[in-house]
Simulated assay, not measured.
Amino acid sequence: MTSEPGPRGQRRRDQLRDFLRTRRARLSPEDVGMPTAGRRRRPGLRREEVAVLAGVRVSWYTWLEQGRAINVSAQVLDAIAGALRLTEPERAHLYLLAGLNPPRAEGGRDDRVPAAMRGLLDAWSPRPALLRDRYWNVLATNEAARVVFGDGDDDHNCLTAFFTNPRYRGVPAHWTSAAPAVVAAFRADAAHAPGDPGFGRVVDELGAVSPEFAALWARHDVGVPGPAVIAVRHPDAGELSFDKTTLVPADRPDRYVVLYLPVPGTGTGDRLDRLVPPPA
């Protein structure tokens, strides 16, 4: 736990105390496979039982639950989360109350795209839209995105496309000015999960085929992902410019909806309407 001084730090420690007490009170020894010993004045697990389950000293857990300003590691918080049978949102809440950044939720890769999400992408047509994961791998696109960017729903990656797709490279001045910011944004995303092999795989594979990416990655620049202008050269429609906005679904914070709007005054909207007729 970080020793944040003043009233704000005390409020956080008070919330941590109450949170741990309520999580402990909702469990019984039977819930966690422990024998019930004697009569209990209060429902729930005792502090010493939580300490045993988490593998920490009773005195240390008592200090934590009392809201004292003590040092705590991510490993210990994970052990306490397991002992108290916390859900992923509760585990993240525990980290925040302890003054640490919550880790990304672990689990098997799930690339399934709900029908409602596919419907959202399709409804955005004739403007391009796509769904990507944390590694910038494309999970789904609408028809406009496939026509404009020339890719599909196969195993693909937005960063790799930016460096290898000739449609992006077809607007050299824009590409050259945008490339450092694109790489810096990817590094900022990767920084949230140091050592994650998914990010490392993208970097290694792209670095092997793109010296330009390798050189920019070696600069260690970090930027804030945000709205950007994307320009491509379509073989039939010519240069197309889009304002790109990324949204995060509340129920899937590891998914990102990327929406593209024609930049006003560039003629992109008119050419896009001819290229991808809106649904009847």
Rank of each mutant, 00 (worst) to 15 (best):
E143H: 15
Y95M: 08
L247N: 11
F186S: 00
L16G: 00
L84C: 03
G170A: 07
G223C: 03
T62V: 15
P114N: 07
R104N: 15
G223E: 06
R13D: 00
R11Q: 13
Q10A: 11
R112A: 12
R112E: 10
V209S: 11
A74F: 11
P235R: 10
H220T: 12
L247K: 10
P126A: 07
R169P: 04
L45K: 00
L77Y: 01
L216I: 14
P277T: 12
D78K: 03
A145V: 10
V248K: 14
R11G: 01
D154L: 08
D14W: 12
G152M: 04
N137Q: 09
R85F: 03
L247M: 15
L275W: 13
W63I: 00
H156M: 06
A214R: 14
R201H: 13
R127Q: 13
P278H: 05
T268N: 08
L247Y: 10
L64I: 15
D154E: 09
V183S: 02
R255P: 02
A92R: 07
R12E: 02
P225G: 02
R91G: 11
W63H: 11
R118A: 12
S59W: 04
R17P: 02
E88S: 12
H192F: 13
G55P: 08
A140I: 05
A161M: 11
H93L: 12
V182T: 14
E106G: 14
L131I: 07
V232Q: 01
G55Y: 06
L216R: 04
T266P: 09
S28W: 04
A98F: 00
D204A: 15
R42F: 07
R274E: 14
A191T: 14
C158A: 15
V147G: 08
G150N: 01
G38W: 06
T2D: 14
A79I: 12
L247C: 08
A83D: 06
I70C: 00
P211Q: 02
A92M: 02
V229S: 10
R47T: 08
G108T: 07
P128C: 05
R46E: 05
E30N: 05
A54M: 02
D111Y: 08
D251T: 11
Q15K: 10
D243L: 06
R12D: 05
F162C: 05
P114E: 12
G195V: 02
R167Y: 07
T22Y: 12
R91P: 14
L27S: 05
G200A: 14
A79W: 07
A145W: 01
P35K: 10
N137E: 09
V56F: 03
A92V: 06
R118S: 09
T246V: 15
A115F: 06
P264W: 09
S177I: 07
R109D: 06
G119P: 01
A191H: 14
A185C: 09
N157V: 06
P277L: 09
P225Y: 02
E106W: 03
G108W: 02
R233V: 11
D18Y: 05
D111R: 07
W60D: 06
W175I: 04
T266V: 03
T22R: 15
L53M: 15
Y61H: 06
P279M: 09
D18N: 10
L16I: 04
A54V: 04
T141M: 13
